[in-house]
């Protein structure tokens, strides 16, 4: 499993960190569709976090279709990309964009700079490099 770390200084809840990192890893093709992910128990122990937290992250990912549970075999990355309703997808994107925008404004970045950075990150993802 590629590096999955919890940042204690990160204000985001741990389950969110896990969820988003998994998404990131899937999106950056660090984990391929169909490959297995560690069990809740094992991941909790590795990260030294509450299994309930891992469980919650996995649950959300499973609900979102990112992960698939195969009875008796474990949890795997879904073969197909998650099917999200249009409205949901857009709402989600908007929410995250607002976040990013707020952060950028806080840091005093201009809109141009913000967009450029976003482009660079996108590029970095699709090219397979880690950020």
């Amino acid at each position: 499993m590629h590096t999955l770390r919890i940042d204690p200084a990160d204000p985001r809840p741990i389950w969110r960190q896990i969820e988003e990192t998994v998404r990131h890893l899937i999106a950056s093709q660090s984990i391929l569709p169909g490959s297995s992910v560690p069990s809740v128990r094992d991941l909790a122990r590795e990260l030294q976090v509450n299994p309930a937290t891992v469980s919650k992250a996995y649950q959300r990912l499973t609900d979102a279709g990112v992960l698939t549970v195969k009875r008796g075999e474990g949890t795997f990355v879904s073969d197909a990309p998650p099917a999200l309703g249009n409205g949901e997808r857009e709402a989600r994107l908007l929410r995250e964009a607002l976040r990013y925008a707020s952060l950028a404004v806080t840091l005093g970045a201009s809109q141009e700079e913000t967009v450029e950075t976003l482009k660079a990150a996108w590029g970095g993802l699709t090219s397979g490099d880690e950020e």
Binding site: V40, R41, A44, R45, Q48, V49, N50, P51, A52
Partner: peptide
């Protein structure tokens, strides 16, 4: 580490 491993394992179970 061992202690928390054990504890987490129990929590998971």
């Amino acid at each position: 580490r061992t202690f928390f491993d054990e504890l987490i394992g129990d929590l998971a179970d």
